[in-house]
């Protein structure tokens, strides 16, 4: 089965095991440009692994992942890294901001990794921080800002390269509902404006409600809820 046309990122029959632990056992996935897809499921079901495979962080044991017409499995580690730098953005639950760098430096980091000059990168970073309403934190270090603010900085960092796909793994996991909501609103708004697709791994229904569609992962198998019955 080939993925239906029009998909930006599609995967089928993904298998991945960490030693004896089977994380993915024939999972499928697909997402359109500008679409927000929630990946839900109980913890340990393999949803994070699915995200890691889709983002080219971890190569699957078998199965195919096609991004924009290119097969990810055939790429070298360096190619996949370059793809992540330029076309993907990432938001994690925590531990992602470099504690030594100021917030604006953190946001500018992906651009700098792509070779943009420091000045230009930080100017772009500041613009995104304004959009996420955290521009006043630019010279603070991550240790000095609140969790919600830090997460917004992280969202700004994920979007600063204007990626085609943003991967968010429990982006509100460490936040209260009000802060979580705000982060989700800003993330989905910004992504929609930029026509970026968002793969949103979460176990919170209220966070998943910001998606256009959801996929449930259970025991390493995914189920697309639109086509469930």
């Amino acid at each position: 089965m080939t993925p239906p046309p029009g998909f930006l990122l599609a995967a089928e029959d993904l298998h991945k095991a960490y030693g004896p632990t089977v994380a993915l056992d024939g999972a499928e996935f697909s997402i359109h440009p500008g679409e927000v897809v929630a990946v839900m499921g109980p913890s340990g079901s393999g949803k994070s692994t699915l995200l890691h495979c889709l983002a080219g962080i971890v190569p699957p044991d078998s199965g195919s992942i096609i991004y924009n017409g290119r097969e990810l499995a055939g790429m070298s580690d360096a190619e996949r890294s370059a793809l992540r730098r330029s076309e993907f953005g990432f938001v994690f639950q925590f531990g992602q901001l470099v504690p030594e760098l100021t917030c604006v430096e953190n946001v500018a980091l992906p651009l700098r990794l792509n070779g943009t000059s420091r000045k230009q990168a930080e100017r772009a970073a500041l613009a995104w921080m304004e959009r996420l309403e955290v521009d006043d934190l630019k010279d603070k270090r991550p240790g000095e800002v609140s969790g919600g603010q830090g997460q917004r900085v992280a969202v700004a960092r994920a979007l600063v390269t204007e990626p085609r796909v943003v991967f968010a793994d429990e982006p509100t996991g460490a936040l209260d509902s009000l802060n979580g909501e705000r982060v989700m609103e800003l993330l989905t708004d910004a992504a929609r404006t930029a026509n970026a697709a968002v793969v949103l791994v979460t176990h919170e229904p209220r966070v998943a409600a910001y998606s256009d569609r959801e996929i449930v992962v259970r025991d390493g198998r995914s189920r697309d809820m639109e086509r469930a019955i």
């Binding site: 229904p205 998943a208 409600a209 910001y210 256009d212 959801e214 449930v216 809820m225 469930a228 019955i229």
Partner: peptide, 13 residues
């Protein structure tokens, strides 16, 4: 359950 959950999520959306 899944059908129901999809319906719930649709409402939530």
């Amino acid at each position: 359950l899944d059908t129901q959950r999809a319906e719930h999520l649709r409402s939530m959306r």
